[in-house]
């Protein structure tokens, strides 16, 4: 599972460079995320722009990533595409995560945005 990271100010951007977060890769994602977030500042943005498919195992892995950061740090999501965005909406996880339409908006948002 290839993730790329970049830190700007108090925000770490973690970009998922894979087309799928599914049952076959959920554990790999959690492990890779843990490594990338280990020394992250207070806010982490997960860029899902390259992800084409997310199943319930992948969704569970993203929730696990959020829990790994809580309670002192938070996880926002950015740029989920059609099918992926639909899974967040159908499961009402769009009410749990702050989801930004694109990475630029996510990086501009402050940590205390809703």
């Amino acid at each position: 599972m290839r993730l790329e990271t970049e830190t700007v100010g108090g925000t770490r951007l973690i970009r998922v460079c894979e087309p799928r977060i599914d049952a076959a890769s959920a554990v790999e994602f959690k492990d890779a995320f843990r490594d990338c977030a280990a020394d992250a500042p207070g806010r982490v943005v997960l860029d899902l722009g390259q992800v084409e498919f997310l199943d319930s195992s992948g969704l569970g892995a993203v929730v696990a990533a959020m829990k790994l950061l809580a309670p002192d740090r938070r996880l926002d999501l950015a740029a989920p595409r059609g099918k992926v965005e639909k899974v967040f909406r159908l499961t009402r996880m769009d009410t749990v995560f702050v989801i930004h339409p694109d990475v630029a908006t996510a990086m501009d948002a402050t940590a205390d945005a809703p």
């Binding site: 319930s56 929730v63 309670p71």
Partner: peptide
């Protein structure tokens, strides 16, 4: 902490 990580499969 209390957000579930599973149980969404049959719902979907």
């Amino acid at each position: 902490a209390r957000t579930p990580e599973g149980g969404f499969g049959w719902y979907l």
